[in-house]
Write a protein that binds this DNA or RNA. Structure first.
Lengths: 131, 131
DNA sequence: CAGTATCCAGGAGGATACTG
DNA sequence: CAGTATCCTCCTGGATACTG
């Protein structure tokens, strides 16, 4: 589990929630993780998928998640370097969380032109939501 | 849904994951939310539950979540002020996420002396986290 | 291709004091 | 009781340039 660079482990009941979130905060981690759910990806593939992220950030987030044991890094000793990133078993075990997050976002945030919340008595109507 | 002060809506597929996380990051939000799952709480009650958090932070996080529509704030016009915080329907709809997070944390982080992942020998070797 | 190395700005979050 | 108001620090993350 490496270092826990997050200063987040204050621990009261609910601590594990915080701790869990601590591993997937970071501006891009959740997105990277989410895309890795679909399978192994190479460095530049991720960059293409998430163009707004600089390579510095990609490396950072990737390294932290690797340290946290969420992802695996496979380096092929080749002339044109090739590095593949994939979910570790621990990272894969995060799938329900990621999916819950995605579903909630799809259902309750109006990111794709959906009408979002609007009505208290209608919180999670979510007639749609693929998945 | 107010302002979305997070600069986080870059939106690529997986965006909703990011967006959803954006609402519950903040050092204490998830913990507050989690405790509110159990019921309405007053300002100072929350402070007691999460002693490490300053009142400034509590107010901050509370306000942001209120702006995001996750919680409701009920003020009683009394001599000794009384303010109650509770989950809004939207906040309540976050329950599966919070629970998934908590379960994952309990299962995979060794915060309470649990053995965590039970898989590859590397996954994690509980020893860090002084709590 | 897959990173490192530097530099830099902004904002999150902590400490402390005051108030309706 | 339930906040505000200030001040200040550090860390996150963006931009850019270089490399094995």
């Amino acid at each position: 589990m490496a270092k826990v660079r997050h200063s987040r482990f204050d621990c009261s009941p609910g601590c594990s929630v915080e701790a869990a979130i601590g591993l997937i905060d970071g501006k891009w981690k959740s997105v990277i993780l989410f895309h890795l759910l679909s399978g192994t990806l190479r460095f530049n593939e991720i960059r293409k998928i998430i163009p707004n992220m600089t390579q510095r950030m990609l490396t950072n987030q990737l390294r932290e998640m690797e340290d946290d044991g969420l992802i695996s890094r496979k380096v092929y000793a080749q002339v044109p370097p090739k590095v593949e990133y994939s979910l570790s078993p621990l990272g894969r075990s995060m799938e329900p969380v990621l999916l819950a997050l995605k579903q909630w976002g799809d259902a309750n945030l109006g990111l794709y032109g959906k009408p979002k919340i609007a009505n208290p008595d209608e919180a999670a109507s979510a007639d749609s939501v693929g998945a």
